Computed example of a mutant assay.
Amino acid sequence: MEPQAMIVAGFGFSTRAGDDSLRDALRKACKAAGIAAPHALATAQDKAPALARFAHTLGLPVHPIPQEALSAQITHTQSARVVAERATGSVAEAAALAAAGPGARLLIPRMHAQDRLASCALAEGAPS
């Protein structure tokens, strides 16, 4: 049996985002990728505590990504506001790529929750 690639859901979200926003963004990204669920969640290090409760309800680990790792990623989308605030085009995409590891590829660029308070992107890392 071949090793399975790790799929990470990266999140960017407002302080006003609740579990419903996070769930909606995740659902949209997973549906677009044709998967049931990721193996882990990731976000900016300072946002990780806010994502932990949601991750716990899913039984998934959270990978907090330091700012320097976020800004080192090449993202598909570019938000001028996010570039100014976070030095990356998309926190969701950068977090997913960074957590998925070296050689990761973006499966789904950021997808917004209907209320636009959260976004989710999926990245696939090399099998371990």
Rank of each mutant, 00 (worst) to 15 (best):
M1D: 15
P3C: 13
Q4T: 14
A5S: 15
M6D: 12
V8N: 08
A9S: 07
A9T: 00
G10K: 04
F11S: 01
F13K: 00
G18N: 08
G18V: 00
D19G: 11
D20Q: 13
S21H: 04
S21F: 01
L22M: 10
L22E: 03
R23C: 02
D24C: 01
R27S: 13
K28A: 10
A29R: 05
A29L: 05
A29G: 04
A29F: 07
K31D: 13
I35C: 12
H39I: 06
A40I: 09
L41T: 02
L41R: 01
A44T: 06
Q45F: 12
D46L: 15
A48R: 03
P49H: 05
L51Q: 05
A52V: 02
A52E: 09
R53I: 02
R53G: 09
F54A: 03
F54C: 02
H56G: 11
G59E: 06
L60P: 01
L60V: 01
P61W: 09
P64T: 06
I65N: 07
P66L: 04
P66M: 04
Q67T: 08
E68F: 12
A69P: 09
A69N: 11
S71R: 14
A72Y: 02
H76S: 06
T77S: 14
T77E: 14
S79L: 03
S79T: 00
A80H: 09
V82Q: 10
V82M: 10
V83H: 14
V83E: 14
E85W: 10
E85F: 09
R86K: 15
A87K: 15
A92K: 12
A96Q: 11
L97K: 11
A99H: 04
A99F: 08
A100T: 05
G101E: 08
P102Y: 13
G103T: 00
G103W: 07
R105G: 03
R105D: 02
L107M: 07
L107G: 03
I108V: 14
I108S: 07
M111L: 11
H112I: 08
H112W: 14
A113M: 07
Q114K: 13
R116N: 12
L117E: 12
S119K: 01
L122I: 06
E124S: 06
E124I: 00
G125E: 01
A126R: 14
